[in-house]
């Protein structure tokens, strides 16, 4: 596994970028014109990208907050939105 250097740059990817790269990896592998050692490497990268995507998706959580304003209308902090 060559997952020492790669996850770092994968972690920086947005979901869109990660999915786009995963798609390109899949289509390259499906075309079947990748050299064997390379195909294993890009498969591993594909797996890492997939994990990253899933992480991004699962990280999304519903959190509803309301800005608390001071008298001057400046935000002081947040509090849960009433009625939620």
């Amino acid at each position: 596994m060559t997952d020492t250097a790669k996850p770092a740059d994968i972690k920086g990817l947005s979901f869109e970028q990660a999915v786009a790269e995963l798609e390109s990896i899949v289509s390259r592998l499906e075309r079947g014109d990748v050299a064997l050692d390379q195909s294993i490497a890009i498969y591993e990268r594909g797996e890492a990208l997939k994990k990253h995507c899933e992480t991004l998706l699962s990280a999304a959580e519903a959190r509803i907050e309301k800005i608390r304003l001071d008298r001057a209308g400046k935000p002081q902090g947040v509090e849960p939105l009433d009625g939620q």
């Binding site: 999915v19 995963l22 798609e23 990896i25 899949v26 592998l29 499906e30 079947g32 990748v34 064997l36 195909s39 294993i40 498969y43 594909g46 797996e47 997939k50």
Partner: peptide, 12 residues
Amino acid sequence: LSARLKAAVTRQ
């Protein structure tokens, strides 16, 4: 995509 990835690499 993940399924295709696995299938593709397995197939290859």
